[in-house]
Simulated assay, not measured.
Amino acid sequence: MRYAINLCVLPFGVWCVDIYQLKTFVTVAAEGSITKASELLFLSQPAVSAHIKALEDELGLQLFNRTAKGMSLSAQGLALLTKAEQLLQLQKELLLDAKRLKGELHGCVRLGSNRGSSAKLLGQLLNQLSTLYPQLDIRMHYGSSAEIQQAITQGKVDAGFYTSIKPDQALHHIEVDSYGIYIAAPPAWVNKDTQPDWQQLAQLPWVLPEPDTCCGRAAAGLFASHAFYPEKVIKVDQEQMTRALIAGAVGIGLLHAGSALDAELKGEVQLLGQTDQQVKLWFSCQPDRMQQPQLKAVIELVQQLVVQPIECDTPSENR
């Protein structure tokens, strides 16, 4: 099948440019050589020359300067090169969109996840993708929220889930879920019927994650608002461990709402209240990648799933 792109309609007919001529034009411009272009395009050199001549005749412009060293773009050719590249990209996206509509979307999408907080939605998303696009290759990358956010920014993954109080404004982001953060203490450590004595709490050991996590930032805000910092801090990197240490009377800590309420119900911890900050679960990607057919299909599914109520499982990841 051959494709033609209409550039404009003239009174005496339609001015058309063959997509293969555009591809030849862009390849010769990149290589600066008909010989090299013919090898890449799997065409004979006369066929490449014929494509260039036909395109120049159609446009009424000289696209290249022929020199002893090869082919160099003329000023007119240089002016049209970006448009030609854009048209080729649009043609590629059109074909991929057609495959997607037929359920034949191919290619690879690299997704990042911070494990626990996104587990339920991620499971739903992967199930939908495998059903609707069985030939789409999904490659998962796991890490902390900070690691996933950095991987998206650096292009190491195409999109991903991470928790943060605020999203990275340089990224396109979808708010997936939100939940509170509770202050949890071992049972009987503190009188739960009175307001917390923050100076007393400052003298007790605390179990905290790293400062660049959402609970780490929430802890910093909590300490600043009450003008204290714990005398002893035990660093952990997983919420399951934080919960276990609090239940084991090692120290006071912060737990996401799902884990905190479950631990209180089971008598493992005593909740002293919530922090002032809400943690949000985000799905993000780089804005300039949003229209890639594979990623576009993923984003559409995430948006559909977010409309449905999402129960956040007890987080168990390094936040």
Rank of each mutant, 00 (worst) to 15 (best):
A159I: 07
K23C: 04
W198P: 09
P315C: 07
I174K: 01
G107L: 14
R2I: 03
I152R: 07
E317D: 11
L171V: 08
A50N: 15
Y3Q: 08
Q91Y: 09
V250L: 00
W189Q: 12
T24P: 05
K92Q: 08
A202N: 04
L81D: 03
Q274P: 00
K102H: 10
L101D: 13
L7W: 12
F42M: 05
L132D: 01
A202Q: 14
S38V: 02
P211W: 07
A220V: 04
A79I: 02
L87Y: 08
L301W: 05
K36S: 10
V307N: 06
G143R: 07
G103H: 05
K53Y: 07
H51W: 01
D212K: 11
D193W: 12
E239S: 14
T153D: 03
Q286W: 09
L208N: 06
S225A: 15
V279W: 01
Y142L: 12
K266G: 00
R289S: 13
N114T: 09
A219R: 09
Q86D: 08
V302W: 02
K156N: 11
S316C: 03
N65H: 06
L122N: 03
T314Y: 00
I138Y: 06
S49C: 06
Q277W: 07
Q62T: 15
C312H: 02
M1C: 02
P230Q: 12
A47H: 03
A30T: 14
G103N: 08
I181V: 15
Q238W: 02
W198C: 11
A218W: 08
L271P: 07
I246A: 01
K266W: 06
N318T: 03
P187Q: 08
L96N: 00
E104I: 00
S113E: 02
G155H: 15
A297D: 08
E104W: 03
L295E: 05
L255R: 13
Y20F: 13
A98N: 10
V157H: 08
R2C: 00
N65F: 04
R66G: 00
G221N: 15
D158T: 02
E39H: 09
I5N: 06
K235H: 06
E147V: 12
R100C: 10
L111K: 06
Q240A: 10
C108F: 05
Q292P: 00
A68S: 03
N114H: 03
V176T: 06
S259I: 14
I252K: 07
E39K: 11
G253M: 12
K235I: 08
P11D: 08
E85M: 13
E93Y: 15
G112E: 04
G70D: 01
F223K: 05
V28A: 02
A224K: 11
L132I: 06
V17D: 14
E317K: 01
G180R: 15
P293F: 06
R2F: 00
Q286C: 09
G70K: 01
S74G: 09
K23A: 11
T275N: 07
R115S: 06
G273A: 01
S145K: 05
L7T: 13
Q150W: 14
C16Y: 05
